[in-house]
Write a protein that binds this DNA or RNA. Structure first.
Lengths: 181, 181
DNA sequence: CCCAGAATCTAGCGTTGCTAGAAATCTAGC
DNA sequence: GCTAGATTTCTAGCAACGCTAGATTCTGGG
């Protein structure tokens, strides 16, 4: 099982095309526009082929986009240097790929976090937060604040034009050494 | 137009029953289970009657549940005394009525916040946060942190059993006089 | 008692996620 | 190179969804 068959490669490539197509359609037209029929048309195959790749159907495809998003976010957060860059990277990701962010945090209930069975991509994203705060509870609160800012901004529930002021104050609040007892 | 007709009263009562049924079904079985057919069966009328009350159909009904939720949340926050009670009331509401909270914050894109046309229920909920922080930017950050905690908890993405520790640290962070410049 | 107008229902359209069974294609052995 | 078997892919269709036009039943004023 060392050499991947040509068929296996084609299969893997097609899986990637499905996930990429789902993400792109979602970012452009929103998740309701991501139908199994449209995905099938996009990759040039019939619908049952998608179920060969994702037995859970549409939900499985959304979950794949979410997992991929967690991987990319973890890379960005790991590369960030310092609390300021960390916050900026997080919020930039959410702003640049709102539909992906939605898939990661609002759509599937069944991704396991903070559990023994948590997938690697999900742990990797939390590690830089933990490193920046030095404390698990503090890291969870920072994450909550960032997620709250991203989510409320995405739904236009914060004053536009004040994003920079909010980030500045957030960084000031969570600056090292300011965590209470 | 002073005295409401008997028919008008019946109509208003039926509207309330639709909203209440939608909320209850959502809290028990989740929003996907809230179908127009099931709502019609629940109130004992056929589907077109629902469209007489809510021209926007299912979306309009969800929006009504969300608006009602904002009204109830605003009452709770207004009654709270001090930062600690405020945070506890917010998080309790989100934990006790997760589907309502989901309707308020995750489902309809077209409720207007932080805009000139923002409905009254939505402004009323923000006022106690503003009073507690004394600063609009600070209030937005506190709201973001609370929403983040509520949303991440709802999806089981924070360590269970540490909710109290998180709230304690949050209150310590946002304690009056600690806001940076 | 009748009859206009409002309220309600029946029935159906188009679309969705998903799947069983037919058809086509590829693989392996000779 | 050919054929039998296995695998992949497609066609066609089901049930359920949101929503709506037209038929039908109620209701209240004369």
């Amino acid at each position: 099982m060392k050499a991947p068959t040509k068929a296996q490669l084609a299969r893997a490539g097609r899986r990637d095309r499905i996930v990429a197509a789902a993400r792109e359609i979602a970012e452009v037209d929103g998740w309701p526009a991501v139908t199994v029929r449209r995905l099938a048309d996009t990759i040039g195959f019939s619908q049952p082929v998608l179920y060969g790749h994702f037995p859970d159907g549409r939900d499985g495809i959304i979950r794949a986009v979410a997992l991929d998003g967690f991987g990319r976010l973890a890379e960005l957060l790991t590369a960030a240097d310092g609390l300021g860059e960390l916050c900026a990277a997080y919020l930039d990701f959410a702003r640049a790929a709102p539909a992906t962010y939605e898939a990661m945090f609002s759509m599937p209930t069944d991704l396991e976090f903070a559990r023994p069975t948590t997938p690697e991509q999900l742990r990797a994203g939390f590690a830089p937060l933990l490193a920046a705060m030095g404390d698990e509870t503090g890291a969870e609160i920072l994450w909550s604040a960032l997620h709250g800012l991203a989510d409320l901004s995405r739904h236009d529930r914060l004053r536009p034009g004040h994003a920079a002021a909010r980030v500045d104050m957030l960084i000031g609040l969570f600056r090292p050494g300011r965590l209470p007892s």
